[in-house]
Design a binder for these strands. Sequence first.
DNA 1: CGCTTCATTGACCCAAATCAATCTACGTGG
DNA 2: CCACGTAGATTGATTTGGGTCAATGAAGCG
Lengths: 246, 246
Amino acid sequence: MAGVNDSATNPLTLKLGSFTDLSATDRTHLDHLARSPTRMRAGEDLIREGDRPERVFLLLSGWAYRYKVLADGKRQIVAYLLPGDLCDAHIFILGKMDHSIGLLSNATVATVSRETMIDVTERSPAIARALWWSTLVDEAVLRHWLINVGQRDAYHRIAHLFCELWERASQVGLVSGGAFDLPLTQEQLGDTLGMTSVHTNRVLQRMRGEGMITFESKRLIIRDMQGIRRAADFNPNYLHLTRRKH
Amino acid sequence: MAGVNDSATNPLTLKLGSFTDLSATDRTHLDHLARSPTRMRAGEDLIREGDRPERVFLLLSGWAYRYKVLADGKRQIVAYLLPGDLCDAHIFILGKMDHSIGLLSNATVATVSRETMIDVTERSPAIARALWWSTLVDEAVLRHWLINVGQRDAYHRIAHLFCELWERASQVGLVSGGAFDLPLTQEQLGDTLGMTSVHTNRVLQRMRGEGMITFESKRLIIRDMQGIRRAADFNPNYLHLTRRKH
DNA sequence: CGCTTCATTGACCCAAATCAATCTACGTGG
DNA sequence: CCACGTAGATTGATTTGGGTCAATGAAGCG
């Protein structure tokens, strides 16, 4: 589950570097954030609704997810976190978490104190700016998930999500040979897209039957990228992966 | 449509002041942002998908909405902006808008240059911090909209949205006598909640019949606040309206 | 007064939920 | 190495919330 990024490449550097040029000093700062990570197991929670956030989490390998459980037991997953993702760089401003964050797979997680976050962003305007960019992208992703669930049917929802995840996994070097690890059960996929696991299952089978995808052993292969993008009406602009001339 | 807040109270001050104490200087800065507003009419767009953001918009009166139109013509509304809301304080970081912003009602809008934004946040850490808070709350609202559309049925979706809007309208002094202006058509409400205007209509009638609400002439009265909150499983924590001890 | 935008209503239809088994892959203890 | 327990995937039968289509009111406005 550790994936391609261990100590050799800091996935946070990889991610922020796709937005802006980072100096050697910046890279050192980012490596500093990734020091002394902990290994954690799938299913553990990093933080729960109602907790007071004390530290920021930096995911170095593995996948995590933000979710909320309603009074009637229904669950909605509202975001996925990939290696290189920092959970809420400025979360300290808020008093309590309004949702939980759990692990979808075994993962390597570093933890950063409030003071360190402040220190790093004060020393490096480039990093501060890149973190802002990251926050704006997170928000754009969230908007597109809402659009997805609000307007598309089951087939097109899955197609859109898979396109997005393919792009995001690519960004941090997780895609190799047209495939990547996607540690999701059909139930989790359903909870992400606002549908039941039963229906998720049927739609996935249809997509397999059409030769659109292969998804087994938690590994996704998109076999017809043109087709799935067309079906999903997918336009990667919202991920803002190309740099703006400053 | 101008509402309660004209020149007397700057709604941005009202909003940020609900998060933190603002000095007299801070207030002056915020008033500076609200200088020379323009009156605009319902239906006009402030900015469209694909545009390069040149200035930040500050809504002083009236309501606006963020939305995206899909290839097949379907529309999803992904946020409402109320007086005091600033559209994307740091939007300049991104190259292009991935959605549009339009006006739901006639409105008073001020426009702030990139330079002014940078200047104000550099001069006042309190304002910079309050803007971060505002961004985090926007994201929390978005998460809760996704939860709403993903997990609740039509009746409970409407209930939850109405509870949220009541809170947000209260925050900037728009609620008086248990009622506030909600300049939405049933179609717009449907596009917000991922449902058709026909179904929206039927559910609203049910809520009226139950004595839960009155909603006519674009004015909403919540007649049974206990009942609607219970139905919506509404917990206002995610709006983070109470201050954290710093 | 005639338009146009909204709200409302009725009839009918369908995507997705629900309910209920199976089936399969895997990890565990013996 | 194997029986067993469990989580996850699959399948079938049935139900339903909400969509679609098509009129018909009502209200605001130039």
